[in-house]
Amino acid sequence: MWQLGGKNFSSRLVLGTSRYRSPENLREAITRSGIEIVTVSLRRQAAGDGNKFWDLLREMNIAFLPNTANCRSVQEAITTAHMAREVFKTNWIKLETVGDEYTLAPDPFALVEAARILIADGFEVFPYTTEDLVVAERLVAAGCKILMPWAAPIGSGQGIANAQALKTLRARFPETTLIIDAGIGAPSHAAQVMEMGYDAVMLNTAIALADDAPKMAQAFARAIEAGRMGYEAGLMPRRDFAEPSTPTLGTPFWKEEKRA
C-alpha cells in the first residue's frame, strides 16, 4: 500500500487512456493489471455523439486523474482544471502547460504560476515537469506535494534520457511523491526508475500501441512491482572490478606457487 493525494493504492502504475484499439481493450488492460488510477482529459464534443469511453470508465472502481493537456497559457490550464473538477468531481489535476511544439516540453514558468494558483484554490496538483532540479524546487515551494518529471518526451518511448538528473531529484526531494511521466517505452525502463526510488510510473503509448495492450499492461505492472521491491530491499553498490562470489577459502587444486 502507498498513499497518493490522501488515498491508499496498491498499484504504482498510472495508466493513460488514449490510443487503444477500443474502449474494451482499455478496460481489459486496466482489469488484468490491477490498475487503480487512470488519466483522462476534456475535449470539445457535440452533445448527441454519446460517450462510450466515459460510460465504460465511470462504471469501474478506479481513480481519475484529469489532465490539462495542450494548454498553452496559465489561464487555459486553470480554466481546464476548474472544468475537470466539475466533471470528474476530483480536486486532482495533472497540470500540463505546453512550452514547445516539437518536444511537447512543459513551459516551466507557466507551470509554476498555474500550480501556485490552483493549490490556493484547493487542487492537488500533479505537475508534468522536466527533470530540472530548480524547476522542481520552485514547484515544491509553490506547494506541490507530487511531481511528475518526464523520462523523455511524450510518446517517444526513449526510456530514461537523463538518469543522473532523475537520481538527483529523488535524493533532493525525499518527502515529495515522484511519479515518472512520459517517455517510458519498455517494462525495463519502468523497473529502472522504480529501482531509483520513484514512487510510481505513468505511461500510455507503450501499452496502448502494443500488439497486445492488456498483456503489456501486465508486463509493466510486474516490472514496476519488481523495481519497487528491489529498491525497498536495497540495491548493492556498483563496483569497478570483480569481487568473487564463490568463497576463495578452500579453492580446489590451489597451492602456493614458488616464484623462482
Binding site: G16, R19, S41, R43, Q45, N51, A69, M83, V87
Partner: peptide
C-alpha cells in the same frame, strides 16, 4: 462558450 466532455487522455 466552451463546452467540454470527458475524453481519452495521457
Amino acid at each position: 462558450i466552451e463546452i467540454l466532455m470527458p475524453m481519452q487522455g495521457g
